[in-house]
Design a protein around this nucleic acid. Sequence first.
RNA 1: GGUGAGGUGGAUGAGUGGCUGAAAUCAAUAGUUUGCUAAACUGUCGUACUGGUAAAACGGUACCGAGGGUUCGAAUCCCUCCCUCACCGCCA
Length: 421
Amino acid sequence: MLEIAAIRNNAEAVKQRLAVKNFKELNLIDEVLQLDEQRRATQTKLDENLAKQNVIAKEVGELFKQGKNEDAESKKAETAKLKEDSKQFEIDLAKAEDEIKDILVRIPNTPHSSVPLGKTPEENEVVKTVGEIPTLHEGAQPHWDLAKKYDLFDLELGVKITGAGFPVYKKQGAKLQRALISFFLDHAVEAGYMEVIPPHMVNEASAFATGQLPDKEGQMYVTKEEGFYLIPTAEVPVTNIVRDEILDTLPAKFTAYSPCFRREAGSYGKDVRGLNRVHQFDKVEIVQIVHPDKSYEVLEEMAKHVEVLLQKLELPYRVLRLCGGDMSFASALTYDFEVYSAAQKRWLEVSSVSNFETFQSNRMKVRFRDENKKTRLAHTLNGSALALPRIVASLLENHQTADGINIPAALQAYTGFKKIG
RNA sequence: GGUGAGGUGGAUGAGUGGCUGAAAUCAAUAGUUUGCUAAACUGUCGUACUGGUAAAACGGUACCGAGGGUUCGAAUCCCUCCCUCACCGCCA
């Protein structure tokens, strides 16, 4: 949610920025400013009214104390009109506040100045491409066939138990999952992130705070009785750790492993084969709450963190700076990381690292004290480090040989085996 | 799930209708004293909205779990909801 004060001070600049995100309803900016004007005027009237009531109440009390009951009674009568007015002001104020909020939650974050123009994923900017694309042996297979060959995971079994997109990992496939999770967590902890295990369901307030609501309501699973949302990413519970807090020290750095649940309503076709797109998957997330002056520096640092992981896994990857049209609602700047899947001959997204500036912290009221002891909104960032399924897919595909799949050296201590098959 | 107790500022905790945005203690913080540590003393020490200012200062309003209500006046009385704790029941 954008800050109303920021919109007030830079309405034109905000509109220009939003245009980069292909946001069409720029009229909302003017509407919200007008409502804000109304709101403040009403606020002032209400405050003045209440101030008068407070004065009278004090006087009445004083008169009663002095035994001047008749004077007190007549004084009382003066408040009737004031109370009536204040009731109306309160209604007007609440209405204006609701309307402002309704509009604000529909306005996406303003993109950073480096965000390229564009509407589709094809227009994302390739920042760099790293690593050799391997030449596979004759008869190399995509990961879903390798999974069958070595009995690593079973999607049909998942269908019986739950439904499509809920894989059952088995044997070395299961161990590989556990190894990757530990590998990622250890690296994050070493980089100074505090490891947490958050709830895997969140309440409405938490889902709203990070921007999943109302934007992505249809993408989340909801429990029937409590109305809890199954988390689509650990970002949601982890960032909410600092909701409504005034932090004494920045940065705050958290990492968490969690399963992620996504309905992926509307997706279909070849993109969803194997582990390319599933409803439940594992991910290690990194989150930072930082000083506004530092957030872009930290974004680069987090991107570097992801890169190192990919290098250690010996996977060819590329880094994309998302264009305005492909960015998420809440982000100001996003780097996507894609690994090359040699058997499918395509790039697969495995991580997304974003700076949200104050977009989340404004909703969540995450503040810190600046040099002048004034409270200010912090910047929040998060990134996947990393999401497992497509990492697994590319590990299997890129490292396959005629007589088995090689485990990268950095991972062997975690898997306990050097080769699958 | 049942019964009982309770939710006050960073923490402990006082406050049962006006003198309470809230005592006291601790923590924190600035300073004085001190050879160091420790201690002592003095000051500061909630948040939000709003007016004001170049920025402060300063002023107004709201907030004592949340939302309603009674009253000239509510932390204090009433209603609803949420949560915490204790004991019992069930249980990994």
